[in-house]
Design a binder for these strands. Structure first.
Length: 858
DNA sequence: CGAGTTATCATGGTT
DNA sequence: TGATAACTCG
């Protein structure tokens, strides 16, 4: 009898478990249930990869390893069976007491380690796990980035390797400073081997786990190679002396740690019985080695990746890791996730078209049940501000149709491209946010303060010390600093140690006073750390170092930046406070410094605020947006100039294009520009080859009115598509530039490109032209042949037309109708504050914003 | 030593 | 184009 109950229970249990993951598709479910042994999940873009990861972890924790599936609970009562059957029949979750009986061989949440590339991804994983398993179990799963995980291991075992426990993490800027010192010491000419390429080479070596000795051996033959190897050795020595790791070292040294300390390795292998690695296509040799060292004898290693989305080859990622996974782990199983839940089929087809042109692929074709959706829009602009304006127009249309700013993302190849867009958006008053580029923590004043903090945490850190020893000016000049460095090298101690005994050295006699008072200040900082909470320590530090006074003086002298810098430091203190609030009693100086070293901009990107977001395609990996604008689709920009000589680089660019395209859910807008100002000079670029690679049936093309006109007059022919003749046989839109609202205004302006000779259907025109674009008519550039007024170079002000007064009703191209609240003169222009009917109060610049007066104050 | 000037430089993407 | 390094002068 008891046996029957047990059998019944087990059958029901299997059904129940199946049911718990019933919302997944078959492949996803298979991935979730394959808990043991090596597993490769090839997950296409938008195929629910994170969902699979989360569910797989949840399955492990709730129901244990599938290997235990033959095990049955020792005692099963009729009551248990009844309850389980009820849960199955009603498709509900079993009560907690019953859930407890369902686990086969138990896996605890802290037995699981999930590694991602960004903190954001790790955080998302963690929060979804918390949602599914409850706060406690969710937090116990070790979800972390490669770098944070390594820092965690190294903090524990740094001393085994000869580093202090409170080691510093160097960013690229620090690394460059070290490198410059190395060059000086070794008398290396920067012209012969640029610092940047040396750092690059070192990075490659570390990514490939090549030690300085090995590098020297392998490169004895070449002058440059041998030199680089010498530099490598010296650089590593300097970092070790300073008690610091750079980003690459974090991985490299952790591999050394695990490789050379079996007991450490065993400890982690036993602790983390189940490993999951996300974005596996972006792992380097070193990261692969790290993962293999962590993988225990059971080989419960699950990697998720997409070879088509490998876009970090340039920094050492080897796609071979994913291509060779099955070779390295012969027992490996491979599961492909090819159903896309994100995009429309037009978008997906466009993506497939592009990626098909790559040869180095595992082969995979995404499909979707989502509808066709709109075609992919392609816009050809005159110049970069026309491109920006077009984007603003489209966003405006969406906004007026009830869309949100935050549904829109503008993606570009390189950060420099954000400037013109940012410019236009700022002037037009469109709320936006730039991710990446110059980061807050990279600002000089912020880095300086962080450097002060670093030397408090780690007195050995000479690089950071050099940075701030004379900032603010303390009469400690370059010669003094070099003398200190020499003395420190002679004695084998840190520079700070020399400074503390400055009076004992004749060579330092001139600078004794400033040096000793610097040291006194340093001690005060250390005291402050001991006696105050961290955030208070930060604000005390800003004062004690004299940094605040320096900025205040500068501000008093009318230095404009000084105010901003003071504010930035205020923000810094805020950030420290936030860190404290978040960590509570666990907040430490080292912890804070670690966080700022490893947290990137994208990590703090928060989709909650209603703003258009601008970022590189690289940053956008893993994200999705309803509307995506991929700008600068031009040869020399995307694909980039530097990639065009190597087929492999071009394939990486193409994968990047694929990543960009597949970020879009509803609509995708590709744009390029005939001329573009880049690095201070105007260039004319051909449209990107990636555009040509997309079958025309998925595209809908248009261009700027000026181009269209030129083309109609036969003066402009593009080599873009030689299969399509120029001319405008089919198109008879509004003539000339002096379009009025009545003639269709904006919407019509963006008709299909005449050069493609496609019919323009009025019925198909983009929405929202009504009433809009009147702004352009009113701008008064009725002159045919005059170029369209771009916001960056505003048309000469037509007398009277740009005057606004409170109470005026105005029309804004993006925000619609509104009433002027206030007009303030500023920098030869006017800030017009307007209360818009749809979007509330916004500030715009009178001369730049696409504004028209509808009626004057009554 | 420090401030101000000029020159040069790079500008592919990121932890 | 913009930012920083190198250089010059007080």
């Amino acid at each position: 009898m008891a046996t029957d109950l047990r059998t019944e229970f087990c059958t029901l249990r299997d059904t129940y478990i199946e049911q718990q993951f019933g919302r997944l598709n078959e492949m996803q479910r298979r991935a979730v249930f394959t808990t043991e042994g090596p597993l490769l999940i090839l997950a296409g873009a938008g195929s629910g990869k994170t969902t699979v990861l989360v569910n797989r972890i949840a399955n492990l924790i709730r129901f244990g390893s599938a290997h235990g599936s033959r095990e049955t609970p020792r005692e099963v009562t009729a009551e248990d069976v009844r309850a389980l059957r009820a849960a199955v029949d009603n498709k509900t979750q079993a009560p907690a007491w019953l859930e407890g009986m369902l686990s086969r061989s138990p896996v605890r949440s802290w037995n699981i380690m999930a590694i991602t590339f960004t903190n954001k991804a790790a955080g998302e994983l963690r929060s979804r796990l918390c949602g599914m398993l409850g706060e406690e179990a969710g937090q116990e799963v070790f979800a972390s980035t490669f770098h944070s995980a390594c820092v965690r291991f190294l903090r524990r075992y740094a001393e085994e390797l000869g580093w202090p426990r409170s080691f510093t993490i160097y960013d690229t800027d620090d690394a460059q400073r070290v490198m410059k010192n190395v060059y000086k010491e070794l008398n290396v000419d920067d012209k012969f081997l640029p610092v940047k390429s040396a750092l690059n080479q070192l990075g490659r070596w570390k990514d490939q786990l090549v030690s300085p000795a090995e590098a020297a051996q392998a490169n004895a033959g070449s002058t440059k190679g041998a030199l680089a190897a010498r530099i490598y050795a010296q650089y590593e020595k300097k970092l070790k002396d300073a008690g610091a790791f750079d980003f690459d070292d974090l991985i490299y040294q952790t591999v050394i740690l695990l490789r050379e300390h079996p007991e450490v390795r065993q400890y982690y292998q036993e602790r983390y019985r189940y490993l999951l690695v996300d974005e596996y296509q972006d792992t380097s040799v070193a990261q692969f080695q790290l993962v293999s060292l962590l993988t225990g004898p059971e080989q419960n290693i699950c990697v998720v990746g997409d070879d088509d989305q490998s876009i970090y080859r340039f920094r050492g990622a080897t796609i071979e890791n994913i291509l060779n996974f099955e070779k390295y782990y012969p027992r490996a199983r491979t599961i492909r996730l090819e159903q896309n839940y994100r995009s429309t089929s037009n978008i997906l087809n466009a993506a497939n078209c592009v990626i098909c042109h790559n040869t180095e692929r595992k082969g995979k074709e995404l499909w979707t049940n989502n509808g066709e959706g709109e075609k992919v829009h392609v816009y050809r602009a005159e110049n970069e501000s026309d491109e920006a304006m077009h984007i603003a127009d489209v966003i405006g249309q969406h906004l007026r149709a009830g869309g949100h700013l935050s549904d829109h993302a503008i993606l570009y190849r390189m950060n420099a491209q954000s400037a013109p867009i940012e410019n236009y958006f700022t002037r037009a008053g469109i709320p936006h946010k730039i991710v990446g580029g110059q980061r807050f923590n990279d600002r000089k004043e912020v880095k300086d303060i962080h450097s002060y903090m670093s030397i408090v945490a780690n007195p050995q850190d000479d690089v950071r010390l050099r940075r701030i020893i004379n900032e603010p000016a303390r009469k400690i000049g370059a010669t003094t600093i070099e003398t200190i460095a020499e003395l420190a090298a002679q004695e084998g101690v840190s520079m700070l140690h020399i400074i503390s005994r400055a009076d004992q050295y004749a060579r330092l006699s001139r600078a004794v006073m400033p040096l000793l008072s610097f040291y006194q200040m340093y001690q005060k900082l250390c005291d402050a750390l001991e006696t105050s909470p961290l955030d208070l320590f930060a604000s005390q530090l800003i004062e004690l170092t004299g940094y605040k006074r320096m900025l205040e003086q500068q501000a008093a002298q009318g230095h404009e930046d000084a105010e901003d810098r003071l504010q930035n430091l205020g923000q810094l203190v805020n950030n420290v406070k936030n860190y404290c609030d978040q960590k509570g009693v666990d907040a430490t100086l080292e912890g804070y410094l670690e966080e700022i070293a490893l947290i990137s901009d994208i990590d703090s990107y928060n989709e909650d605020s209603d703003q258009v977001v601008l970022m590189t395609i690289h940053s956008a990996k893993g994200l999705e947006f309803p509307y995506v604008f991929l700008v600068g689709m031009e040869e020399g920009v995307f694909p980039s100039e530097m990639s065009k000589y190597s087929e492999a680089d071009l394939e990486e660019e193409r994968r990047l294009a694929y990543v960009g395209i597949t970020r879009a859910k509803k609509e995708l807008y590709l744009s390029n520009s005939v001329s573009r100002m880049l690095y201070g000079q105007t260039r004319r670029n051909e449209p990107s080859r990636f555009l040509r690679e997309i079958e025309p049936e998925y595209l809908e093309e248009s261009c700027s009115p000026a181009l269209e006109r030129a083309s109609r007059m036969g003066g402009w022919r593009q080599d873009y598509s030689d299969t399509v003749p120029g001319g405008a046989s089919g198109y008879s839109g509004p003539s000339g530039w002096g379009r009025t609202a009545a003639s269709g205004g904006f919407g019509a302006g963006y008709s299909r490109a005449a050069y493609l000779n496609r019919e323009y259907n009025a019925g198909e025109q983009r929405p929202a032209s009504r009433g809009f674009g009147a702004g352009y008519a009113a701008r008064g550039t009725g002159t045919p042949g005059a170029s369209r007024p771009a916001p960056a170079a505003p048309a000469k002000p037509t007398p009277g037309s740009k005057r606004y007064a409170p109470g005026d009703i105005v029309m804004h191209k993006v925000f619609g109708r509104g009433k002027v609240l206030r007009v303030t003169p500023a920098a030869g222009d006017f800030i017009v504050e307007i209360n818009f009917e749809k979007v509330g109060v916004k500030k715009t610049m009178a001369n730049f914003a696409p504004l028209t007066k509808v009626s004057s104050e009554e």
